[in-house]
Amino acid sequence: MPQLPLQTLSRQAFAPFGEVIMLEGARHYPINQGTTERFHALAMADTQTQDGKTILSVFRAQPRALPLAIEVMECHPLGSQAFVPLTSDKDDEYLVVVAPPGEFAADQMQAFICKGLQGVNYARGVWHHPLIALHKQSDFIVMDRIGEGFNCDEIALDGSWTVG
């Protein structure tokens, strides 16, 4: 059974799949008479297709046990999709499994371990596994597209690939 190695999430390693949303290394400056620090343009939403709008939601994920069989992947052809954990604990973890856009290729999947202070923004069309929380129930702010057109393609896998 093939197993995906877990990589540490970094901007460089994740670049082929989208953007990492984190404060470390971000452009920032004081605003509001110095009472607030703005971490500017951490990611760009790609949702402005015809009849599309950007929305914010909260997803509550139940923890999953490892190793985890990869049985489904999905992609959003009409817009990006961002996940930002609602935690202040850098030790909270979740997993991201991705594959390049286009025709799905299981042998091109990659898996990343994400810390609680990191979010991800999947680029339009990037294949990804549904949310994988670890250790505890976890809430995420999700930014994605709503509107006309079908924006979620899913592919069922045989579960022969595992992560963790």
Rank of each mutant, 00 (worst) to 15 (best):
S88E: 15
A99N: 11
A61D: 04
A26V: 07
D153T: 12
G102C: 04
Q110G: 07
I141V: 13
D46R: 13
S57M: 14
L78K: 08
C114P: 03
L66K: 04
N151F: 00
Q12P: 00
Q33W: 08
L134T: 06
D46N: 12
P30E: 14
D144I: 09
Q118C: 04
Q3L: 12
L134Y: 09
R145Q: 00
L157H: 07
F150H: 14
D91P: 00
E24G: 10
M73Y: 05
C114F: 06
D92R: 06
V142K: 01
L9M: 12
G164I: 02
L117F: 07
R38T: 05
L78D: 03
A105W: 01
T87R: 09
P30R: 13
R11D: 15
G116K: 12
V20M: 04
L157C: 07
V97S: 08
A41H: 11
S57F: 01
A45I: 11
G159E: 07
F112P: 00
D91E: 14
N32D: 02
A82H: 02
V84L: 15
R60M: 11
G52P: 01
V98L: 03
D91V: 00
L117W: 10
V20Q: 05
H76K: 02
I31A: 05
M22A: 15
H129Y: 12
R64C: 12
T36W: 06
Q50T: 15
Y94P: 00
L78N: 09
E24D: 15
G25H: 11
D107K: 13
A61V: 07
F14W: 06
D51R: 13
A61E: 08
I31E: 03
H76W: 06
F83V: 02
G119R: 12
Q12V: 14
P5T: 12
K136C: 10
S57L: 14
G119S: 10
L6C: 03
C114E: 06
F14D: 08
D158K: 09
I21G: 01
T162E: 09
P16H: 04
G119E: 13
T49M: 05
G79K: 01
I70H: 05
D91N: 13
